[in-house]
Design a binder for these strands. Structure first.
Lengths: 204, 204
DNA sequence: AATTGTTTAATTGTTTACAAAAGACCAGTG
DNA sequence: CACTGGTCTTTTGTAAACAATTAAACAATT
């Protein structure tokens, strides 16, 4: 059998959600910006129904904050203590994931992760920092999903999103790709301890 | 000013969500049971719109699992390793909460928690185990909310719900109320270390 | 007999129209 | 001047009709 390229099918709602997430990450939508259902519906050429679903979803992820009968707005950054807690918890989830996939990674997985890093490098060269952030997330997402499936992704995702809301910019562009390469290399060598160490260094 | 009794206003959706959560906790809705939007709408005398919102919300909480165009069904119990991870993470959140509220609790709070325990005792005597579970959760909820507001509640809630899905029954009825009383007593005495110890013992 | 293709029923996804709540504005009053 | 009280507008919440997708039952073919 030839190599099967898995093209992921995205629902309309997923695409809208992705777009709004990008807008928030990129800074186009600043904290406290109010999201108007009607406007969003017109922007995406849809009715308010699906938009409401997306807003509810992003609210659960912590990116938006909703009040009854008052709509949703972009959430603010966390207070430092909560921020620290979330970093700690996210680290533990990622460490758990690494321990789980220790012996499960195939050559196919390494290739997939390699490709992600290539895309990351490219986005960095293009200075497309929104793309950088999304690709960065997708690297971690791949590992989390492999380790614990959707269940684990679902509890992991809110932490990532909230952290991204706090630090909008990738400060150290080179460091970013190097850190991820370190993780991947350690995984390739089967050196989980090092992979964990590198991951902890990357999550901050 | 007289004592202001705070009666919480619940939206329609919150009430429906609560009801479905109860049905799952009580065992009326077993894992893999499919939820039909139309049936639910008729049962609650609503249209499908709000029902869809509730389903999406419960899916994000991990109680339901949804597939595109195929509806939602009650989620299964977690595999042991994920279960252990979630217990660990929930403990850390609750410990964090206790450390935060150390000096913030007023007499009003102690009374509120006392009342919760009285209700817990009563539910136990009536052998209404669904109520027991809900009141149990509300005790912890009170502390989490006090410590970190909705932000913290939002990341905490999924863990509680998923754990409840795993152990449906309160095994040790007396132990349950005793454990919570130990937490409250420690808080009253300002003995946070003991409160943390008791909380850790309670979350399992 | 097993598998593939087609039709049909049921269910979800989306749109549109309507009801209710919140916020803005402005006049009137102390 | 501040403040209450009302109307008006805007926005969200809900309902009901329509479109699209899926699953199942059945027929046809190899």
């Amino acid at each position: 059998m030839a190599v099967t390229r898995t093209t992921k099918i995205l629902t309309v709602k997923d695409q809208i959600a992705d777009q709004i997430r990008s807008d928030i990450i990129s800074g186009d939508l600043l904290p406290n910006t109010k999201l108007n259902e009607k406007e969003l519906a017109e922007r995406f050429g849809l009715s308010r129904g699906p938009i409401r679903d997306v807003i509810l979803q992003l609210t659960k992820e912590g990116l938006l904050i909703s009040k009854n009968n008052c709509g949703a707005s972009v959430n603010c950054i966390l207070e430092p203590k909560l921020q620290k807690l979330m970093i700690k918890l996210r680290r533990e989830i990622e460490v758990f994931a690494l321990e789980q996939i220790k012996d499960k990674l195939t050559e196919r997985d390494f290739n997939a992760l390699d490709n992600i890093l290539i895309a990351l490098q490219e986005a960095l060269e293009n200075e497309d920092y929104t793309a950088v952030t999304k690709i960065d997330i997708s690297f971690h997402h791949y590992i989390i999903e492999k380790a614990g499936g959707d269940e684990l992704v679902n509890i992991w995702y809110p932490y990532v999103m909230r952290m991204r809301l706090n630090y909008k910019r990738i400060v150290n562009t080179e460091q970013c790709v190097n850190e991820h390469r370190a993780i991947l290399n350690a995984l390739r060598e089967g050196n989980i301890a090092q992979a964990i160490k590198s991951t902890k260094a990357n999550i901050k």
